[in-house]
Nucleic acid binder design. Structure first.
Lengths: 107, 107
DNA sequence: CCGACAGGCAACCATAAAGTTGCCTATTCA
DNA sequence: TGAATAGGCAACTTTATGGTTGCCTGTCGG
């Protein structure tokens, strides 16, 4: 999996917003996703392409429409491989702190 | 908390690498963090500033050195507020994290 | 068949971002 | 005290990025 593409895709607020909307209602068309946005259709299409390339969104052509689906797997991977890693660090820091506090109390 | 700054800070591979190095060894100086990187000191300093502004890193001046420390809290917030949202129920990392935190607190 | 609708493609523009060079300040220590 | 060390500041270059306009293709319904 290409971590970098995922992180870069998530870096943009408009793209996070698109993921939000897909999360609320999956399988939307491009036109549907454009509604209410201060952006041209082409701009939205570019964002969706970037999300697709990062594997955060998959799409399926149906007739003249293109349906978009959110794909949570890469986010999951990041959470597992990245956030988990740092939080484990924090946990061990916490337990060290706790031990040293106990040491102070008892020593 | 400014989600956007955090996401944008994480979008760059060099900055993720810096976080990695701080995760392996916390409290490093700028010069220390520069070693082995194909980048000028000034470039690294800029990256560290961006990480600080996103609250992912904190620093403390000590004499003529500046020590850098990783701060996992914003990453945790993202996990809670964002990634957790998409993966609620399916993502194990977050719930494991919560459980272990609760375990430490109450145990 | 044809017009309206959904989307794709490419060129272009403006700004943000990554990185550089050059120089300045503050601390350490021989 | 002064050279070496650690870092800060600012201007500049280059390249990525977000967004636009304009036009083309494909598909649906009357």
């Amino acid at each position: 999996m290409d971590d970098d593409a995922v992180f870069r895709a998530l870096a943009d607020g408009s793209r996070r917003h698109l993921l939000d909307r897909l999360h609320r209602k999956n399988g939307q068309t491009l036109a549907e996703l454009c509604r209410g946005l201060e952006m041209t259709r082409q701009a939205v299409a570019k964002h969706l392409l970037i999300l697709e390339e990062a594997n955060l969104v998959s799409s399926k052509r149906q007739g003249r429409e293109k349906l978009h689906f959110i794909n949570p797997v890469p986010i999951n991977s990041i959470a597992e491989r990245w956030i988990g890693k740092f939080e484990r660090g924090r946990l061990s820091a916490l337990s060290k702190l706790k031990k040293s506090l106990e040491g102070e109390r008892h020593g």
